[in-house]
Design a protein around this nucleic acid. Sequence first.
RNA 1: GGGCGCGUAGCUCAGUCCGGAAAGAGCGUCGGACUUCUAAUCCGACGGUCGUGGGUUCAAAUCCCAUCGCGCCCGCCA
Length: 595
Amino acid sequence: MFLALRAEVEDALEGALAALDFPTDDLGIEEPPDDVASVLASSVAFRLASEAGAPPPQVAGQVADEIDADELTYVSDVQTQGPYLNFLPSDAYFAETLSEATADDYGTLPDREESVVVEHTSANPTGPVHVGRARNPIIGDAVANLLEYAGYDVDRHYYVNDAGRQMAVFTWAYETFDESDLESEPERDRKEYDLVRYYRKGNRVLENAPEDEVEAAEAEIESIMQGLEAGDDEAYERVSEVVDQVLGGMTECLERLPAEFDEFVKETRFMRNGDTDDLVARLKDLDESVYEEDAWQLDLEDHGIDKNLVFLRSDGTSLYATRDLAHHEWKFDEYDRAVTVLGEDHKLQARQLRTTLELLGNDTDGLRQVLYSYVNLPEGKMSTRRGTGVDLDDLLDEAIDRARKEVEDRLDDRIRDDELDDDDIERIAHQVGIGAVRYDIVSKQPTKAITFEWDRALDFEAQSAPYVQYVHARCCGILEEAGLDPEADLADQDVELEALEADLLATDAERDLLETIARFPAVVDEAGDDLEPHQIATFTREFADRFNGFYRECPVLADGVDPEVREARLALVAASKHTVANALSILGVAAPRSM
RNA sequence: GGGCGCGUAGCUCAGUCCGGAAAGAGCGUCGGACUUCUAAUCCGACGGUCGUGGGUUCAAAUCCCAUCGCGCCCGCCA
């Protein structure tokens, strides 16, 4: 409803300004501070003052007089407060918000008939997912969810780097060493924990072994890479044996978040189908291409990039960047838009990619990056190769353990007599524990650096997932108590919706809550445009504050409540439930029915 | 050295893109509220040169310039 109200206000204001012969290019529309009763305001009078030859408050009065609120649907009155114009919401605004929000898909925007591929995570299949990269699947999954709610047709891709030198090293190590050569046991009973030991062993050997041993290894690694470049089935199968096993394990870890993918796109695909060769030929033809030191490169200095892009090594093999160009042209063929979630260390490459795609004749308007900075340990970076870092599995386990302990501690002084059984405790521990990890990461701007500390990452206090989840559980508790199904659309249930006069919800707490609910679709819209899921997290906090205010002030099911008011408040609770459930669902945080 | 990002309360962060109503949360500290729909909640108090210095503007945390601190990048790695 907020979007409709904003459109109406813009129209009315523009009309009034035009009628007064004022310029209409800047309407100065803004959201007023909390202590102001209006839903939207305008500071346009400041700008018009000199032109009008009158002080701003007087101009504001003039403009307000020009607008007839009776002709507006969602605005009941236009008032001035000093230089500001305030647009007050009408009963229709509240009534329509209430009726819209009781639908279980509230917050879902109309279908845009536009497809978008969200590529995220895409971690090299070298070993267990560690916390340093954990921002990627968490932000990426939220961005994909957000775009789905915003009306896009979304596919989620994991781009598998199976053709790089690292994988050749891994394959060589896997084939060369035996279990008995390894110094340690797997840290966990899953494939990537088992195999990463070969990768680490291989890297240690390459760094420390005698020269002739390293040379022999390098020759083998080189032959694997040449085999891949030639599209050789045997090389592909050797590498795949490692890649598929490790990736399978990593996928299981990511499913715990949960972060799931529609497709795992391997980069070897673009070598084997000839796209990379074609692309290399086209790159060579560009004016920017140069052949220096036996390698083919692109000189992008005229396009503001100092660093050359090497696209063919002196040994004739392609590079990650080369294949990624082919990969992106494929994305452009298949989708209207493409979003990639990347670590900030890939920023320069992202610029090179975009520039080069343009040189190749692609329209890159639909290509956007979401950049985040890595999570580091107090003592430095996490690295799979060196085995430094905190595994995401361990973080999730610890989160669940701490959440379980929290649930058990609270069991004794629990008022509600719904008797949580062991399954409930386990369910809540998972929902809260994993939810807290995700919420902590997704609620911050991705560009801010994070240093990992256990206690900070696993803080269940307010402004965290449990705070918001608790509001959801409270909503469900009330609805269930009233005999309603919290999950379902209220319209499909046995409730007298026609009795929902908005003036039954007259207290400030109810109005504030409804106003917040009304803004949800607009928040989805803007967060989707900006690719910033943390805006949704900020909204959930504001929403939870408002709901708790309502909860304190307005009993729903208590004995003394007028039956009509009770119905209206139940509808408000149902609207709240769908709002918070859907907001949490965008963030990928579970919404518990009880906790 | 160059490019990019970050700097807001003791701590963790919103707000910055798109300038407007005496800077907002949470944690921590202190003081209150459970015979009432779940106290993982709520209410109150304390706490701020918005890194620093200039500039633009009727108006700057927000825009511009400079500067300091921290991070990332500047591979025929990914």
